[in-house]
Design a protein around this nucleic acid. Sequence first.
DNA 1: GCGACAG
DNA 2: ATCTTGTCGC
Length: 235
Amino acid sequence: MEQILKHTWELSEADAINLQQELSLKVIKEDHFAEINYVAGVDVAYSKKDDKLIAAIVILNATSLTIVESVVVVDTAHFPYIPGLFSFRELPPILKAFNQLKTPPQLIVCDGQGVAHPRRFGLASHLGVLLDIPTIGCGKTRLVGEFQAPEQNRGAIAPLVDNGDIIGNVLRTQENIKPIFVSIGHRISLATACEWILKLSPKYRLPETTRQADQLVNRVLSQIQKNMKTEESGT
DNA sequence: GCGACAG
DNA sequence: ATCTTGTCGC
């Protein structure tokens, strides 16, 4: 898959913030896409013991929600976790994984925020701008913004507001279950993003894309930890 | 100064 | 997010 825009990942904290402000101008907050046949789910896990990031991409058929391809990349972490600068830690391995992908998706669902971010440029927006593909930010918890709890029924939404801007929606994907935080990543409107997340979450709290990517990433993570254990006992 | 803070 | 511990269910 072709990466449209590239930049260095060796940045200071201040330079990373400047880059976010510059790139945030490129985010398109409307529906800019044609037919969506394949949807990607992206997730990253972290092994603290050997300081490795494990990035997984799962491609689903957009109608049947079955897996058509998956890729895993294990990489060294080169940037610390700083709230607001999450993408500078997790995107390098994610982009490596996209390079190995054979089935290009027309929509990417990210585990992390889109424009629901202090500088309106969370991981989902960052990935969307670099690949120029529609992305949705889908977080389990909030980074910024205030909200009221949405009604208890599936599909209920409440606006996520920061500085007077509606930066996302708090969306109930399953009745009586904690809602998730949906925001524009790139090339999609908030309303369409929520429609897709509901369509992708027929059974569980999280969309099938992130669920499958999470399962894959954790399977690889536990395999790595298992291998390290047998190496210890063999030495 | 203190708390809050995607994963 | 991970790690550690304990508890519960299969």
